[in-house]
Design a protein around this nucleic acid. Structure first.
Ligand code: MN
Ligand code: MN
Ligand code: MN
Ligand code: MN
Lengths: 219, 219
DNA sequence: GTAATAAGTTAGAGTATTCTAACAAATTTG
DNA sequence: CAAATTTGTTAGAATACTCTAACTTATTAC
């Protein structure tokens, strides 16, 4: 059984993997806030356990078992976040840190009950998909708001960053998942976008913000 | 901040302490299922952190800080058990193992919300008191059913053992907290008790069982 | 295509937690 | 109270996870 530390490595490998399923050691080390030698030795040990394919100087690749394991931890994380928001009244900006701990609990029934009580949700409070109990993940094809053109109407569906600070920023602008936005114009100089929605006839969003907002284009 | 391991030691010291607040090293080692040298070295390290008073060959005594710390972990454990039973539909025989893990989560708001949602309960699903958020514990003066006399009517209020096996035994006999029992007779040979309650006009409870049932004497 | 830079590896060490083997102190027994 | 037993301690070692320093390989820049 994977330790909490190993589980965090698997999750990081999974989340940092590019479209080819590859990650560099330095990205992994940076993502987990550990030194390069620490990540290096840990990866060797994950290889021994069969979670990772590792060859000197080559990019890291999760094995099929490693991918499934990682997805199941992410499942626990996202179910927990959803439970905290929907059943315990937490704000979406408060739940990540708690879920970061709860995800390591070994108690299948505990997460099964969350799943049932929530009605088997498919996305978490930040719009990310919840892997199913086999570790399969549904892929969505959302686009960043930053890629949208003036005149388009879109619906906010997910985020590529769920830091407390970013979520508090969104709270302050009353931007929630589901909000419909009209793209009014783009400032050529800094690529900021001017949008309108609900009771906000005109709001300017920096590129940094708009590229972290994933939307579905309505028209 | 105490590690999960240290927290488990503090809890064990707290729970195993006699009326003088003392525990032997061997009891501690046995309680935690570790070797004597392991417990010995751990106790020395707990002393360095100020949780335990330790002198060679003397019984172990938790410091005031150690007692409070232990009580606050027990608070998280018991609140969790109550939450699992009352809000998530678990049976009282299923919750201890889960709570054993959840108690180590560092997230004050998480347990505050449980507390609120439960209406600030004072006992857990097994009748044990839930320490308050200052680590203070309400003491009850219950007596073991084994000490009761034929003719007495009592109410089942708590247990001195909450193992899954024992709880499943109680489930099989429809014995729950709150059940009123009439003590009919005691068998002199093996000290078993014959009792009646609800739809059970006659049930024999071994001494092993009756000494683990804590009751309030009604008449 | 070198030279400079970035990325990755090895060596060696430290803390936390655990163990077994050997020994010492304290307690119980007859 | 001396012997037997129980309890507690020390020494030495193993595993998991982490670090810094030193070195090597790979990549990027002229
Ligand atoms: Mn999260
Ligand atoms: Mn985590
Ligand atoms: Mn319990
Ligand atoms: Mn525990």
């Amino acid at each position: 059984m994977a330790s909490s530390t190993e589980e965090n490595y698997l999750k990081a490998l999974f989340n940092l993997s590019n479209s080819l399923g590859e990650v560099n050691l330095s990205e992994l080390a940076h993502g987990l806030q550990v030194s390069l030698p620490t990540a290096n030795s840990m990866v060797k040990s994950l290889q021994k356990s069969g979670w990772v394919n590792y060859e000197k100087y080559k990019p890291l690749i999760l094995t099929a078992a490693g991918q499934k394991e990682a997805a199941l931890i992410i499942r626990k994380h996202r179910l927990t976040e959803m439970f905290l928001v929907k059943k315990m009244g937490f704000g979406w900006e408060e739940v990540h840190e708690i879920a970061e701990q709860v995800e390591h609990i070994h108690a299948p029934k505990f997460f099964q009950r969350m799943d049932e009580m929530l009605g088997f949700p498919t996305i978490d409070p930040h719009g990310s998909p919840i892997p199913d109990n086999q570790g399969r993940i549904q892929e969505f094809s959302y686009v960043p708001l930053s890629s949208c053109k003036p005149g388009q109407t879109v619906q906010l569906t997910a985020l590529t960053n769920s830091s407390t600070e970013f979520l508090e920023f969104l709270n302050s602008r009353k931007l929630a998942l589901g909000t419909q936005l009209n793209v009014l114009s783009r400032e050529a100089y800094d690529l900021s976008l001017v949008v309108s929605y609900e009771n906000h006839p005109q709001e300017t969003l920096s590129e940094k913000v708009s590229e972290r907002l994933l939307v579905r284009v309505l028209e």
